[in-house]
Amino acid sequence: MTIVRDVLKELFKMFVADFRLTTAILAAVVGVAALLALGVVGPMTAGLLLAAACVAVLAEAVLREARARNRA
C-alpha cells in the first residue's frame, strides 16, 4: 500500500509541484480560450497571447520562489 500511496503522491507532484504555478497556467489557458471563443482575439493572436501568458506565469513563479528563499 505504501508503494501505491507513493505512486499517487509522485503523480500529484508531477503536475502540482507549485500550486500557484499550476493554477496560474490553468487560468491562463481558460482565459485565452474564453477570449478566443468570444471573438475578442483572433486565432493567431490567441496563440501569441498564450505563449506570452505562460512566460509571464513562469517568471512570476521563479521570482516569487527566489524572494521566498531569500527571506528564509
Binding site: 503536475f15 497556467i25 513562469l58 513563479a61 520562489e65
Partner: peptide, 17 residues
C-alpha cells in the same frame, strides 16, 4: 497539451532555480 505545460513548466521552474 495542458498536462505537458504543467509538467514542463514545473521542470523548467526548478531547473532555472
Amino acid at each position: 497539451g495542458i498536462l505537458l505545460l504543467l509538467f514542463g513548466m514545473g521542470w523548467l521552474r526548478k531547473a532555472i532555480l
